[in-house]
Design a protein around this nucleic acid. Structure first.
Lengths: 117, 117
DNA sequence: GCTCCAGATCGACAGCCATCTATACACAAA
DNA sequence: TTTGTGTATAGATGGCTGTCGATCTGGAGC
């Protein structure tokens, strides 16, 4: 995303008879769009969708050692997906002794869900 | 995504004292997760978020020639983003004469929003 | 100290993605 | 029929992503 998303018109509407009414600029501005795209990108993988689904179904916390066997993937790959979700603010992490417990932070999902509806 | 997402446990829970209760398999199965990830991936770009936002705000149809000037991007790039949204079932297209009019198909978004909430 | 284990990180590799320029296509108008 | 215009496609390119095996880290227990 090496693009300045500042809404900076470059081309003009075609001359002659217009094709349609002029439209308003998007109300969702750059930062909001970037934030929602970041959450959407974190959900843009079936494994991560299923990870979030499992975590939400177990409202408490789920140990990583329970998550890995659910997928036909290596432990580092599952750890990678969990990190993507963590960096998007979708899940949180608490370490207790040897184990790591993940849980859903509903706020990020709620923001996207609110815009979608 | 070269991975069979059929939930096929490979590792066992650690022996000795368990770290947590066994958890249920995700209720969202493979096909549903793949479908939602496809929609999420189509929204995983700020430009596409803003395109959807503009189209939704103009419940009718919006000509491409109105969309291109909103972004600091080339016309082919905007066309590419519109195609991604089209292939994800998020927007529809109607051509009239020289012009192409895009509109939102709310169903795909509603499915994702429903799961998120 | 040493060892074991859960989990994270590293490095590599293949495939995908966003962007551009150049070009093609389809329709309109002269 | 030739020219012009709106939009889509093609091809190239640099960067990002998903996956793996190997390794590191840090706590538990002896």
């Amino acid at each position: 995303m090496a693009v300045d998303l500042e809404l900076a018109p470059k081309r003009k509407r075609p001359a002659g008879e217009p094709c349609c009414e002029p439209i308003a600029y998007p109300e969702v501005q750059r930062e909001a769009a970037v934030a929602m795209a970041r959450v959407a990108r974190a959900l843009a993988d079936p494994v991560r969708i299923q990870l979030v689904d499992v975590l939400r179904r177990h409202a408490g916390q789920v140990c990583v050692c329970e998550l890995v066997p659910l997928f036909d993937l290596s432990q580092p790959t599952v750890s990678h997906h969990l990190r993507v979700l963590r960096e998007a603010g979708i899940v949180g992490l608490e370490r207790r002794g040897l184990w790591a417990y993940y849980y859903v932070l509903p706020e990020a999902l709620a923001t996207l869900a609110g815009w979608l509806s």
